[in-house]
Structures are given as structure tokens and as C-alpha cells.
Design a protein around this nucleic acid. Structure first.
Lengths: 135, 135
DNA sequence: TATCTTTACTTGCAAAATGCAATAACAAAG
DNA sequence: CTTTGTTATTGCATTTTGCAAGTAAAGATA
């Protein structure tokens, strides 16, 4: 593990995912059902391969992601969220809400609109879904 | 303004505060009542002066912070949160909760414990406090 | 069994951001 | 007009990011 800058929980969180890419990978898994390296590469933000690899390794090392051989295709890996990763859900949802609220370029789609009406409900719903899927 | 990587609200949020420092400045203002450049410099994470200046400028440009001459000391500036900045509160609180939950090195202090019991209440309480203070 | 495809990753290099130390600008106070 | 407090800049080494190309290995195809 790396050095912590302080024992402030916000600082500790940022030590792990305080960059422009880590939470986008989490988003892809959490909200878009993506599972594999090649699916992450396809996202519209166009992450570079070296950065993707380094983030996947860091998130796995932080026990946020679990990397396993795909049962369907043994030459493929699938990444899934651990409990610790699933617990990032409220942060993701809050960032989604804030980003949509203050950015005219970010139209609210289905989830975004549901969040406006019943944020807690959306979080509960996704928690349920994510915990079903995970080992 | 800079280029957006996509129109995803999470990505747009990360374009603004997706780094290791911006949210720590927000934290200092939001939860610790800090107001000025020199107070931010004192925080335990020891931000460098050039980075502090660049973040303050970026956050001001993003309309998250407001920079004003201090009424008490006219050679001093004070930074305050705009409505947009105040709305980062839920993200900060969620990151605080997650960081404390998964980091043994981060003891929960008063706020951290309150969050465990009544997160929504803590958010409401801080919203009230912050909106009072702000112009 | 050779070669093609898919999937995951590595490498090299330029550009940008960060970290650190020193110094500057400038208003207010004495 | 010198000192103090506050904010900001500069220079330089290190680290991270961005981009393009190449490598590796397991299956699938012929």
C-alpha cells in the first residue's frame, strides 16, 4: 500500500480513488454492467490502456475490485466489485446528481431523473442488485 | 473552461474535482470553518503553495468558491462556498463515511460517529449551518 | 500444425501535473 | 521606510498522464 497523507477519512478515500479515472471504472461496473478490460476500454471517455491497467491493479490491490477468470471464456478476465467496492455506490450516486445538476451538458437520463425524485430509493435498489450479482 | 471528456455527469464531476487536493480544500471550508489561503496551508496533508493556488483558482473559476477581501483584514482574502460548492456536502459526507468504514487508521470522531447513526440528519444540519454563513 | 483472432498487457516517449524550496509582491502596521 | 503578514510566483526534479505501437498467450480456424 502507498503512504497515507493523513488519518482524515476523506483524505484516505482520495488517496485511493482521487483521480480522474478510478471512479469511471467503478461506474462502468456498477451502473453499466461492464465486466472486462475490453469493455472498459470502449467507454466514451477513452481511457488509455496503460492507465486502465494501472487503475485495475490499484483497485484490486485496494480490495475494491476482484479479478477472476471468466467462467464463460477461460482466456478472459472479469472484474467484479467487492463489498468495499459496492459501498462506493452512494458516492457515485451523489456525484452523478451533482454533476447533472450543475452541468447543462449532462442531460439526466433514466437514473438521473429517478435520483431527483427518490435518491435513497435508487441507492437501495442498486445495492440490492449489486449484492445479488456478487459472490 | 477545459474540455469535457464526455457528457456523463460523473465524468463531468471528476473533470472538476477529480484529483487528490480539491476536495480537501472544500472539506477545510465546509467542515473545519477554514477561510483563508494560510489556513489551508496548515492542514495536515501539507499541500504545496503552487498547487493550492492553482486549485483555488480552478475552484473559483468553476463557481464553487467565492473569493472576497476579508472585511476584518483588508490585506487578506477569504474564500467561501457558493451554492454549487455547498451542494458538494453529500459527496464529502459519503466519502468521509466510506473512508472511515474501510480504514482502520481513520478513527471516527464526533462527526464520523453521528454519520453512522443518522447520515441524513448530519447532512441536513450542515446544510443549515453552511447556508446561514454564506452570502 | 500453422496462422488468425481475441483479450490483456507492456513499452517508449512527449506532455502535463505534482512536490519541494526559494523568492517575490504588496498592503497594513509600526 | 522598514517590518510583518498574507498571498502568489518561479525553477527544477519527479511522477503521472496521454498516445501510439508492439508483445504475449489462449482459443478458434483452416
Amino acid at each position: 500500500m502507498e503512504k497515507l497523507r493523513s488519518d482524515c477519512p476523506i483524505s484516505c478515500s482520495l488517496d485511493i480513488f482521487g483521480d480522474k479515472w478510478s471512479l469511471l471504472i467503478i461506474r462502468d461496473i456498477m451502473l453499466r454492467g461492464k465486466l472486462s478490460y475490453s469493455e472498459f476500454l470502449e467507454s466514451e471517455e477513452k481511457i488509455a490502456t496503460n492507465i486502465l491497467v494501472s487503475r485495475l491493479k490499484a483497485l484490486e490491490a485496494a480490495n475494491i475490485l476482484l479479478k477472476q477468470v471468466s467462467p464463460a471464456n477461460k482466456s478472459k478476465f472479469i472484474y467484479s466489485l467487492t463489498e468495499k467496492g459496492i459501498d462506493l455506490l452512494p458516492i457515485i450516486i451523489e456525484m452523478m446528481d451533482w454533476g447533472a445538476k450543475y452541468n447543462a451538458n449532462c442531460p439526466r437520463r433514466e437514473v438521473g431523473k429517478k435520483i431527483q425524485k427518490d435518491k435513497a430509493g435508487v441507492i437501495r435498489e442498486y445495492y440490492k442488485k449489486l449484492r445479488k450479482t456478487t459472490t
